[in-house]
Design a protein around this nucleic acid. Structure first.
Lengths: 213, 213, 213, 213
DNA sequence: AATGAATGAGGTTTCATTCAT
DNA sequence: GATGAATGAAACCTCATTCAT
């Protein structure tokens, strides 16, 4: 039996609407009907594209993580200096956030609460995405640029955690938080400044933070 | 009408059960009945102590944040060197996590999704808690220990974000994540190492990271 | 086994509070706790005096109807002219309403909705109370004062229904209804005027409505 | 968003079932599920047509009162003699009762207990319906047919109250009450006889009660 | 007698999902 | 493909009633 041919652009329409609604109301705070309304379709139609509400969220996670992994691959191809790679990665995450803060909110807040996120399959994917930065750090350690005292995966946690926390301030408190007083570009720079300097070994002789390409 | 005299220890019993159940199933994934069962009481009784399920979560947030703010005050009294203060703060958060990982999970994952968390009152409290680390960084900057290029609140985001992300790996993937390969003590040290070194100004002449008291 | 000796005045305290609360919130709209609060006692205590919330309402009905039946007996003893009797009866109901409009509201609106009101026992009591006016009308018919074309019980329905409806306007719409523009005394007089004249046979030669004693 | 197109006959099906169930068990004595069962539908469906149980009762009141007001208008068009009008009105109410005693019971017993019945909007409607008979009486007074000593709205209370009380005897005590011994037609005639004669001024020279058309 | 903590049945309402059209 | 009427499981919460103190 062949998969039924489904209109691909409508599937994306639904996913986009789902991200927006999940971000605004939270996964369990919204109704499937809200997503349909946002997408401008009948809610019954959603079930032609996704077996359940859960699957919508899982699809968002998987497809997005795939894009992220592709981006890491590309960064690894395009840059040589691990510090440039990290910079580019952080830059990408922040850019992404500016393009679709809703998506970042969903990825950060809703996905981890879903039971199915903890399936073998999804956890593997998630680990892969965390491994992205860790691998860059590991590489930097081998090149003598980063201190070997720091476990690469911990460095990845710090990088991702810092970025996420900063972004969350934008997401949840758009009006008044201090981040608004500094630009997103400055936030990017400061996080990179601290992390890269923090990772640099004590005996590093005057190695400066690499300039952005 | 006077406030009804309510058995305080039962209130705490309920709060404790709520934290456990919220952590395991998520706030919206669990039923009030689950909490009651965990507490070994009838669910109707919960409503004598808390007006609603929401209020249960809010109480967890508020009471816990108060404890955290008290701890910061105490740290500010007990230590002089801002680096020691940061170290002590991170230490405290990790200790807390080891004592009650459930609580940390709830604070990190469930609270921010609750609409009422974004009330004026609760946001003020939350900002205060983020200000804790920021104030220490600010102080360090004035003492010439930390680079003034980093906005204090950004440093706070990094610190809190890093710790949270690390903790979340324990929380969500207790069996297999890499953190388990390094001890919690090592995680603490590594985060502090990176952040403090990352904050240290370039011209800092050999100032070492302060030893722990 | 002897009946437990219960403090009689507290029982009345509860009944009084119940009437007030039933009137204000309706029987099913109020809680037993509301009655207790109104009475200034613990709600558990109510169950020492009444087996259930239902029984409270039934007690109100029964005790009140007994008083009403006694009043009818007394009127029958004190007056001779059936028209005086009717006048006195209506007067009594209105007076009663002025003294405790809550009670009238409960008797009119809440009692008939209670399932147990339709028990054999309570229905008998209710019929007796309706029979009060009917008997007076029957007597008037035998004396040639009232037309025999009107079934006595129908006359009773009219009398009671008219009074009830008028009272309900006071009860439910105390601020603005037209009744407020005419006094309760006028309402009484008008109802009597219409009913008594309406009952008077066509051939009644100049018999005037009896003056009030 | 346009109003959803809802199957009108299903809405009426629900209303009909609600009237029956409210009448049998009382508004607060029944469950929404009972209404659904009576209507032969799932109870969730009721909420597509009515926002809440309250709204169901309010709809019954409003739609029915509108029909009643239309009827009064029609009577005013079709008849000239106010006595005919009153006769026709009473006739209509009793007919209505015979066609749907449940509806009359709900209108008489359940509606006035609902908090929302006392809203501005609903009270206005209710007053309008009471004004129907009052206006006819006022007209009769101007034509010299009715005594000016009786306030028209009081006359309306008497008429409506008498009819309601009589009906209630049928409703609540269908088996054994005395009304059953006299036909509904007789009840109508007797009430009209008394009220109209009661309203006729003392000096009315031989004006007979108008024959029914 | 008096209290009010504790219980849990049962209510209203929501909403994911199905399915006839 | 597309719709939205229909379903009913399941949630939150209330409150009459019991009972230990």
């Amino acid at each position: 039996m062949a998969e039924p041919k489904l209109n691909l652009s409508k599937r994306n329409l639904i996913l986009k609407a789902a991200v927006k609604v999940f971000a605004q109301q939270g996964y369990s705070g919204c109704r499937v009907a809200d997503i349909a309304e946002e997408a401008g379709i009948a809610y019954g139609l959603i079930y032609r594209y996704f077996p359940s509400k859960d699957d919508l969220l899982i699809a968002i996670f998987q497809e997005n993580t795939q894009v992220y992994l592709k981006k890491i691959e590309q960064i690894n191809r395009d840059y040589f200096d691990p510090r440039d790679k990290l910079r580019c990665l952080v830059q990408y995450i922040f850019d992404n956030f500016q393009k679709s803060p809703d998506l970042v909110k969903v990825m950060t807040m809703d996905i981890p609460m879903l039971n199915r996120f903890h399936d073998e399959e999804n956890q593997k994917l998630y680990e892969l995405s965390l491994e992205g930065a860790a691998e860059i750090v590991r590489e930097g350690q081998q090149m003598g640029l980063f201190s070997k005292k720091i476990t690469p995966i911990m460095a990845s946690y710090m990088l991702n955690g810092s970025v996420e926390m900063a972004i969350r301030q934008y997401v949840f408190r758009p009006q008044r938080n201090a981040l608004n007083e500094i630009s997103i570009k400055e936030a990017t720079d400061q996080i990179l400044e601290v992390i890269i300097k923090g990772l640099t070994p004590a005996d590093s002789k005057g190695l400066k933070v690499a300039p952005r390409p």
